[in-house]
């Protein structure tokens, strides 16, 4: 078994070792994403268990404003699509197209975060803070963690654009584009559940 294993690696390494290493790194990132998914599941579980404990304060129905959140959802959905278009442009060998779509993705991501921050500030201004009730602690932690992920993604893609302008489309930057795009799709997928479980079910 071990022998066959080494043999296979040696064989792969013979003509295309670097490529395989990049694929292995992609798989490593996939494993990280799964652990991130588990992290979010604990925050969802916490929110679902405590969201009815409002400590006499407002509940979801009273403080959530659906129109803004619906816009946020479509913004993030579109950015998931544009990050896919970035990968397509890269596969077609167009660095201009790739960087262009990455910039569009960043801008959409930034408007998403901007709207979320505005929503948070409005809630805090109205006196509904993370300290107000178990419901709001769970809400700010879950939604805030997602927002932090998106913000991190924006910084990451920005760094990637700088790398791309320096080194162009290489095997390494290609892998990084793939990874960031999968990360971005993942954040959209998590947001679907935040939108459904927290907002839509909240205002029902």
């Amino acid at each position: 078994m071990a022998h066959a294993h080494n043999h296979a690696f040696a064989h792969e390494g013979g003509h295309d070792g670097h490529h395989d290493l990049e694929e292995l790194r992609k798989f490593g990132f996939w494993i990280f994403l799964i652990t991130d998914l588990i992290l979010f599941s604990t925050l969802f579980a916490t929110y679902l268990v405590i969201h009815e404990n409002t400590a006499g304060g407002p509940d979801a129905k009273e403080i959530f404003e659906l129109p803004g959140v619906i816009v946020e959802t479509f913004i993030l959905l579109t950015s998931s699509f544009t990050s896919g278009l970035a990968v397509l442009a890269m596969n077609a060998g167009s660095q201009k197209g790739l960087v262009g779509w990455l910039i569009v993705t960043i801008l959409l991501g930034a408007s998403f975060v901007g709207m979320e921050v505005t929503e948070f500030l409005k809630l805090i201004h109205e006196g509904h803070t993370i300290h107000s009730s178990a419901f709001l602690s769970g809400f700010f932690t879950l939604v805030g963690t997602h927002g932090l992920h998106v913000s991190l993604g924006i910084c990451w893609i920005t760094a990637l654009i700088i790398q791309l302008s320096r080194y162009g489309i290489t095997e390494v930057t290609q892998r990084k584009v793939h990874i960031t795009s999968i990360y971005w799709h993942f954040l959209d997928a998590v947001w679907i559940f935040v939108f459904t479980v927290v907002y839509l079910m909240g205002v029902m």
């Binding site: 294993h5 043999h7 690696f9 395989d20 694929e23 996939w30």
Partner: peptide, 15 residues
């Protein structure tokens, strides 16, 4: 031992 062959391919298709 197709399994070994695929280790490096983690994400997507082949070479």
């Amino acid at each position: 031992m197709a399994q070994n062959n695929a280790i490096g391919h983690g994400g997507h298709g082949g070479h």
